[in-house]
Amino acid sequence: MQWFLANLEQVLNLTGYHLIQAVVPLVLSVLIAIPLAQLARLNKVAGGIILSLGSLLYTIPSLALFVILPSILGTKILDFSNIIVALTIYAVALLVRSTLDALNSVDDTIRQAATAMGYKPLQRFLGVDLPLSIPVLFAGLRVISVSNISLVTVGSLLGIPSLGFFFTDGLQRNFPTEIVVGIVGTLVLALLMDVVLVLVQKLLTPWLRTAKPMPALASDLHTAAVEA
């Protein structure tokens, strides 16, 4: 605790770097995954390619991808962008799948009703399909957020600053306290991000606040599957 207070400034600095590397991929992945999922839904061939490419990229271990990317992107090995691109790739791979499940789970009669009320296709997608997919989408985002926070620490092996610095530095200095501070910091960050995501989801789905959410079984099963 004393060490923590004495080094508070460094802890906060590294937390800032850590947050940037974890949050930017989360935002980017939403922007990329939603159009890809809609494309996959409308076109079976494109869908097959997107999903297989996604699971292939997702399979590449993070440490390997972190060091392969600089040669592809032409970045320096110490650039934040390597971590951000790598985590965005993983997040998109996971999110396309859950967004696709979410869009497929929207009741067709609802779509037909929207069309009958005069919704244009894009309008209907943004105003009907997408909002109804939010609970499943956010289930995916919460899984990604937790894993991003933990993956960012691996970048410290390359010398990229994050709370993971306390692990490498603590090991080299033979100083467990520092490592514990790093672990606790990472856990707190993951927890806070989760709370923020839950709050944002509540804000975005006001219609779920009063009534019981959807058929419980389907959403439960999906959450269980996503979490598993």
């Binding site: 699971s55 993070s62 993983y90 799948r97 859950s98 899984v143 894993s147 979490e227």
Partner: peptide, 9 residues
């Protein structure tokens, strides 16, 4: 979803 789930490492 089973093939592509859980935490990345």
């Amino acid at each position: 979803t089973a093939g592509l789930t859980g935490e990345k490492s």
